[in-house]
């Protein structure tokens, strides 16, 4: 996903002279092509995320659309006040890009598990929040951001995520990846969408037909977002995030009470475990069989 991000950012930078990339001494073997092609619009600010975010706000006030780039919680929680005061309060065009959403860096341990970011950042109402599921969604998200410079957060996976679908363009609403004939849907944000699709395939072999929605757009939520859920009565929300503040919370906060929301998220105990993303998802009940079991219950009589 990070390769799709940088390729699309380079494409956008060729058209938009204000696009600027500022990294926090991370991005080895990812950001170099941008740095080589646009040396005047690239900066390595060093291992100093508060200064990175503050100076990004200053660059934005000078006319740039600055993409800050780092991993896990470093460009978000480490410098949360800079994001709140400098970027959001001044309404400046800074897009925070974090690689390593959820448990992408599973075996690097607790410091690198980015599983509270959505809950914390959603409280910054000025912030547009995008959480793509695959390389195609990441490209669409970058295209949208380049066309709409503003305070924003782009939550990326890591590398090697498969293409799950081909979104035409980002919308301010969920994308229907698989349509169903029942009033039950699985809604996922981020690369865990893959588990949702696998679970739906499993259930299809049992004759259970349900929809799968991808939710790269998380904030702000408007009428289009709510309308996309109108066909459903029961929704299973999947996310690589703790159960507080993320997608499930968002749906409970914004959808009408007639739509029942069930959640599969990361139990806090799992953030203290170390292992591959796949193994950690199993521990959290976010693998295809566990998701299918939860969805089967929803689809039942």
């Amino acid at each position: 996903m990070r390769t799709a991000f940088i390729q699309e950012l380079i494409a956008q930078a060729r058209q938009c002279p204000e696009v600027f990339l500022a990294v926090g001494d991370l991005g080895y073997s990812v950001v170099e092509p941008f740095a080589q092609e646009f040396p005047d619009r690239f900066l390595n600010a060093g291992v100093a995320e508060q200064n990175l975010t503050g100076l990004a706000a200053g660059l934005a006030a000078s006319g740039y659309h600055v993409f800050t780039y780092s991993i896990a919680n470093f460009p978000t929680l480490r410098c949360l006040e800079q994001l709140r005061n400098d970027v959001c309060h001044h309404d400046l065009s800074v897009t925070v890009v974090s690689v390593g959403a959820g448990l992408s860096y599973g075996n690097l341990g607790y410091s690198h598990h980015a599983v509270q970011d959505l809950g914390i950042l959603r409280t910054l109402a000025e912030l547009t929040i995008l959480s793509p599921a695959d390389p195609g969604e990441a490209r669409a998200a970058v295209r949208w951001l380049a066309a709409h410079p503003r305070p924003s957060y782009l939550r990326l996976g890591k590398a090697g995520e498969p293409d799950l679908h081909e979104p035409a363009a980002l919308r301010e609403a969920p994308l229907v990846v698989r349509s169903g004939r029942t009033a039950v849907a699985i809604a996922a944000t981020g690369s865990v969408l893959k588990c949702a699709l696998e679970a739906a395939d499993l259930l299809a072999t049992e004759g259970i037909d349900l929809a799968v929605l991808s939710c790269p757009w998380l904030q702000p939520v408007g009428d289009d977002f709510r309308a996309a859920f109108a066909p459903y009565r029961r929704v299973l929300a999947l996310e690589e995030h703790v159960g507080t503040g993320g997608l499930a919370s968002l749906l409970r906060d914004t959808l009408p009470p007639g739509i029942a929301i069930t959640s599969r998220a990361i139990p806090t105990a799992v953030t203290r475990m170390v292992g591959s993303q796949t193994w950690l998802r199993q521990q959290a009940g976010l693998d295809a069989p566990a998701v299918a079991a939860a969805a089967r219950e929803l689809a039942g009589p």
Binding site: L43, Q50, N51, T53, G54, L55, A56, A57, G58, L59, A60, A61, S62, G63, Y64, E81, Q82, N85, D86, H89, H90
Partner: peptide, 21 residues
């Protein structure tokens, strides 16, 4: 130019303005 109140914010912002210029 810039709202402050929490300390330690204006110099990083100023560094960005200076770099931009």
């Amino acid at each position: 130019e810039f709202s402050t109140g929490s300390l330690g914010h204006a110099l990083p912002f100023g560094v960005g303005l200076a770099l931009g210029a």
